[in-house]
C-alpha cells in the first residue's frame, strides 16, 4: 500500500505516533514532562431548589502557580455544569467533548439534557481510558427529575450525594460540609456554605488558591457567579510605574506596514455585459 504523501486532518481520537519515541526517551533517563494540573478544591451541594457548584481558581504546574484566575466550572448544557480537578487538559477536553455530544442530542430530541446522560457519557469515556485520562469531576444540574449532584472519579466510578467535594482540597472542604451541611438550605445559606468550603481549601491546601467561583442552578435558570469572592487581592502593587532610564539596545528594526482594510463606499460603474 502506498504511503499517503500529505497527512489529512484527523477525524478524531488519540494519536499514539510519538509514544515510541517518548518511551525511548524515558528509558534513556529523560523524565516525562509534568502537565498543568488544577490541584484543586471543587465542591457541590443540593439546596432547597437546586444545585450549587463551587471552585477555586488556581492552576499549577509543579510548584509554580501558572494561572491565578482560571475557570474550573465548565459548561455542559444550559441546565448542567461540571467542576473539574486533575490534569487541566483532560478536564477541559472531556467536558468539551461531552457538552458537544449533549448539544447534538438536544438537537436530535428537542428536549432538555438530563444529568444522568452527562454522567453516563463522562463515566464511559473515563472508564475506557482506565484512569489515564486524569479528570475528577463534580457534576451538578437540574432536569426533569429535579436536582442532581454526582462525583466522577478518573477511573470511571460515580457517586450520588447531597454534598460532594473533589481535588486536593477536598478534605478541607469536606470538613466544612460535614459539620455545617443540612437538608433544605436556602440559596443564600447554600452559597455561603459553598464559599466557606472553597475558602477552607484555598487557605489550607497549597494546591488551591486565589478566588471563589460559584454556579447556582435552579429549575429553568442558572447564575454563574465568576469571582464571587476575592479573598486574596494583590497586596504589593507599587504606586510608581517602572521606568527604564537606559533604553534597550536594539540591533535591527524592521517595520512591516499592514495592509489597510479597503472599504468600498457607493457603487462604481456597472460592469458591461
Amino acid at each position: 500500500m502506498s504511503q499517503v504523501a500529505v497527512e489529512a486532518p484527523p477525524k478524531g481520537g488519540f494519536s499514539f505516533d510519538l509514544c515510541r519515541r517518548n518511551g525511548m526517551l524515558s528509558k534513556k533517563g529523560v523524565p516525562p514532562p509534568s502537565y498543568r494540573k488544577t490541584g484543586t478544591t471543587i465542591v457541590g451541594l443540593i439546596f432547597q431548589d437546586g444545585v450549587i457548584l463551587g471552585a477555586d481558581t488556581r492552576a499549577t504546574e509543579g510548584p509554580i502557580v501558572c494561572d491565578k484566575n482560571c475557570e474550573k466550572i465548565h459548561y455542559m448544557a444550559p441546565n448542567i455544569y461540571c467542576c473539574g480537578a486533575g490534569t487541566a487538559a483532560d478536564t477541559e477536553a472531556v467536558t468539551d467533548m461531552v457538552s458537544s455530544q449533549l448539544q447534538l442530542h438536544r438537537y436530535h430530541t428537542g428536549r432538555e439534557s438530563r444529568v444522568v446522560t452527562a454522567l453516563t457519557l463522562l463515566k464511559s469515556h473515563l472508564f475506557k481510558y482506565q484512569g489515564h485520562v486524569q479528570a475528577a469531576l463534580v457534576l451538578g444540574g437540574v432536569d426533569a427529575n429535579g436536582p442532581h449532584l454526582h462525583t466522577i472519579y478518573p477511573h470511571g466510578s460515580t457517586d450520588t450525594l447531597p454534598f460532594a467535594t473533589m481535588g486536593s482540597g477536598s478534605l478541607a472542604a469536606m470538613s466544612v460540609f460535614e459539620s455545617k451541611y443540612r437538608e433544605g438550605l436556602t440559596k443564600e445559606e447554600g452559597i455561603k456554605l459553598v464559599c466557606e468550603a472553597i475558602c477552607s481549601g484555598i487557605f489550607n491546601d497549597l494546591g488551591s488558591g486565589s478566588n471563589v467561583d460559584v454556579c447556582v442552578i435552579t429549575k429553568g435558570q442558572k447564575e454563574y457567579l465568576r469571582n464571587h469572592q476575592l479573598p486574596n487581592p494583590r497586596t504589593y502593587v507599587s504606586s510608581k510605574r517602572f521606568s527604564f532610564p537606559k533604553k534597550t539596545e536594539v540591533l535591527l528594526t524592521r517595520i512591516t506596514p499592514l495592509k489597510e482594510m479597503v472599504e468600498v463606499i457607493g457603487g462604481g460603474d456597472i460592469m458591461e455585459e
Binding site: 534597550t248 539596545e249 536594539v250 540591533l251 535591527l252 528594526t253 524592521r254 517595520i255 512591516t256 506596514p257 499592514l258
Partner: peptide, 11 residues
C-alpha cells in the same frame, strides 16, 4: 499594532 508590525532584534 493594527497598522504595522515592528520587529526588533535586541542586544
Amino acid at each position: 499594532t493594527p497598522t504595522e508590525v515592528k520587529e526588533r532584534i535586541l542586544k
